[in-house]
Amino acid sequence: MATFKEFRNNVKPNWCPGCGDFSIQAAIQRAAANVGLEPEQLAVISGIGCSGRISGYINAYGLHGIHGRALPIAQGVKLANRELTVIASGGDGDGFAIGMGHTVHAIRRNLNITYIVMDNQIYGLTKGQTSPRSAEGFKTKSTPEGSIESTLSPLEIAMSAGATFVAQSFSSDLKGLTSLIEQGIKHEGFSLINVFSPCVTFNKINTYDWFKENIVSLEQFPDYDPSNRVAAMNRIMETNGMLTGLIYQNTTRKSYEDMISGFKPEGLAKQELAITEEQFNQLVAEFK
């Protein structure tokens, strides 16, 4: 059995010292080991941005694709070999701006993959522009007088799109985050985990201290039932989206793979490519 150390490689991340992404990387590595994966059984598919580099920092199969498209690539990987554990990852710009269309439809489609968003409320790699997650009034290089667009609520959008697993965490809470990722991996369907990951260089508002002050942990509500969709939506709205923990899980809906007609448990990539002459003749007969 692999330990989390086997999910480490010798590549030094190009993240700034103190970046929240380091902890998310560690949490993924620990969760992968905790659920009993070997490195070759995991594929991490990432987008573009500071966070997108994560696929290169984990000793597993990894594909660092193009901006906003981590999810369709990850879904393609999963369809091709459902025996793999597939984690898609990227930033809030990647998933909620350029890639928002894919996010909503990946949620609807409900393939058995885990999507970890490293949410820092700003564009870091391009050196500090506004993100859909930035607060109204947030001043950046692209919004010198403050953002005049409303802040996007990924949790509400995920819920309304029919998500079967919605969680949120904070990069400082390594233990809680690791546990949520493990639950996400085990969930039979699409799991969204939005993680507050402070940008220490360009975001001077949403700092570690700011999050500590504003986060509302679900641990405060021992009776909270994550299978109650209405309660989940209410709690998200009541806390203005600052809620952390497993917010919603639907264990009754089957994953996309389980609903595809004729789709076998064995990875498609391992199945025979050639068709028999008899099958061929059957196909051709229709056109006579």
Partner: peptide, 18 residues
Amino acid sequence: EDEIAAVTMAIGANYAGV
């Protein structure tokens, strides 16, 4: 949902061997 998803999904699936 669109052609970008169509082509990138195909890339992911080809990468994984189908």
